[in-house]
Design a protein around this nucleic acid. Sequence first.
DNA 1: ATAATCGGGGGTACTGAGTGCCATCACCGA
DNA 2: TCGGTGATGGCACTCAGTACCCCCGATTAT
Lengths: 222, 222
Amino acid sequence: MRDALVEAAFGLFSDRGFEQTTIDDIVSLAGVGRRSFFRYFPSKEAVVFPDHDGCLADMTAFLEQADPAGDPVEQVCDAARLVLRMYAGNPAFSVGRYQLTKKVPNLRTHELSVVWRYERTLAGHLRTRYAARADGALRADVIAAAVVAAHNYALRAWLRSGGEGDVGAAVDEALQLVVDTWGDGAAEGRSESQDEEVVVMVARRGTPMWRVVQGVEAALEQ
Amino acid sequence: MRDALVEAAFGLFSDRGFEQTTIDDIVSLAGVGRRSFFRYFPSKEAVVFPDHDGCLADMTAFLEQADPAGDPVEQVCDAARLVLRMYAGNPAFSVGRYQLTKKVPNLRTHELSVVWRYERTLAGHLRTRYAARADGALRADVIAAAVVAAHNYALRAWLRSGGEGDVGAAVDEALQLVVDTWGDGAAEGRSESQDEEVVVMVARRGTPMWRVVQGVEAALEQ
DNA sequence: ATAATCGGGGGTACTGAGTGCCATCACCGA
DNA sequence: TCGGTGATGGCACTCAGTACCCCCGATTAT
């Protein structure tokens, strides 16, 4: 029944447009009562993003069982890849939805709130992992935003192309920029060097002392 | 008249809540016709963010006349500071609005779309400045997202505190993280090299902190 | 001075999203 | 067979947002 509503709504939206379609049109095409529409979807916009609630739950579960010793940046990147897999699983639907959200401001806004929940989930995970750092919360927010931006950059390029090419590889490449910049293997923090008994801290000349201390502290303890 | 509507709406929203206030309540308090409300604001939510349209225009103008030779990351940070100045200019209003948007999902969503327009403006500027780079567009999106995240991190901390303390300094510190990472002077690419600009401190695990600090200090301040 | 024009504001009626409430029906255990 | 429960349909309502028309005051041309 959910699926029937989604299919009916999506067909009508693609055909005559979002604003030109009323809830009555959708429910009469799907053959259900008007009241039932709002039992399954809280708003007209929500029917365009029917799978994101489940995906957000998946992401939350995934991050909760993540290895506390692993690189948190890699982990949130993997979490973002969960979202990508959902898009890539239904290329036709994803591309059609992209066409729709591009044109309808209301849907764009709704998509923003969906993406925002993903971003806050990623940031929440990073915040717990960076709790020891003095600037942990800031770092978490910035990295979460960067991951989402990189993910969306590659995803949107793929959607714009109509679903051609390998999204997975494109997203991997985009996320690589974030991992290289913020991941455990990046310049600041532990070097990927040979001896794990050794900690290397790299800083530019003129770096404020408190920042250096922070970096070393974070690398040494644990 | 705009101001009268904003004041009336804000008072009622703070008093009985957003959903509990109708447009009729607002216009009757402001002493204007209902139709006039929608002449000034496209929606009930928009009245809560009356100054962002002008601020977005300011930001666009600021970036258009930016020095083409300057560090684009510094420029978008300065652009973000324009937004901050708007918030800091009316602490009481900003804090009240924050309390409101925190509670009302509709307003949070609307705020997201406002922030999104800022972010796209910053990203657009960075894209033109990074046009020469192969990964220019990706970089632009990631940096814009990072700048917005850092800005919002400090801004929200200030709003949560009720407007206490120096927001400007907090935002500067938060944006510093982004500039250090992505700005022209960042350590990108130099970490593995033996560049004389780079100082490396090596220590064994368990090294007393004071000794690490001593070593780094001695190396950094010549 | 009078008439024509024009722009800001008001009023009315309408569409359509979203909600609350109740009736209905299928299913299920006792 | 009966009572309970959960899913659905139907009805009526509120309210945001819009289309359309009116009013009024100011400006300007004749």
